[in-house]
């Protein structure tokens, strides 16, 4: 076995913890978690990530690829330093999400699925995040949710992300 591993030791330890949740012969149950862990570390799900995870979980690469392309939060391309996903579904829209979006696009000078020229922010349109009470809602880099992102807080949010 070659030890040319893609991820950090910590990442594999985390994946091992996920594997331990499932019956021994059901390692592939950990594929979503493994891809999320890899994305958190590598920034995106590259072909190499898919191959590595496939090998680690005894899966066919195409089976991992199916998963990676099915679930919307996996980045199949590199993103900026921050991936900013904003929900535009009806409850958020009723709370002004579209105005927030317009403001974000103007401030960052980009459209959805683009990255600001300084590489700071990639803007994504997202579906209901299950937090409509705090609408409009955004998620930064998959893990950090913020609510009540009206037009008035867009500037400070963008400034904050640019500093990251």
């Amino acid at each position: 076995m070659t030890d040319r591993r893609l991820l950090s030791i910590k990442a594999y330890e985390d994946i091992d913890k996920e594997i331990a949740k499932y019956p021994v012969e059901r390692k592939s149950s950990a594929v979503m978690a493994a891809l999320a862990i890899a994305q958190n570390e590598a920034g995106w799900v590259s072909e190499q990530v898919v191959e590595d995870v496939a090998a680690y979980l005894d899966m066919r690469p195409i089976a991992v690829w199916e998963v990676a392309t099915f679930y919307g939060m996996y980045n199949l391309e590199k993103t900026g330093r921050s991936k900013l996903a904003i929900c535009t579904n009806l409850p958020c829209a009723l709370q002004g999400a579209n105005k927030t979006v317009d403001q974000l696009k103007a401030k960052l000078g980009i459209d959805f699925n683009q990255t600001s020229s300084d590489g700071a922010v990639t803007l994504k349109e997202a579906e209901c995040m299950g937090a409509c009470g705090d609408a409009p809602v955004v998620i930064i880099n998959d893990r950090e949710m913020r609510g009540k992102i009206g037009v008035e807080v867009v500037d400070s949010l963008v400034e904050e992300l640019k500093l990251r």
Partner: peptide
């Protein structure tokens, strides 16, 4: 155990 989704309604 907890299992997380990743963006699929």
């Amino acid at each position: 155990y907890a299992h997380h989704g990743f963006g699929a309604y």
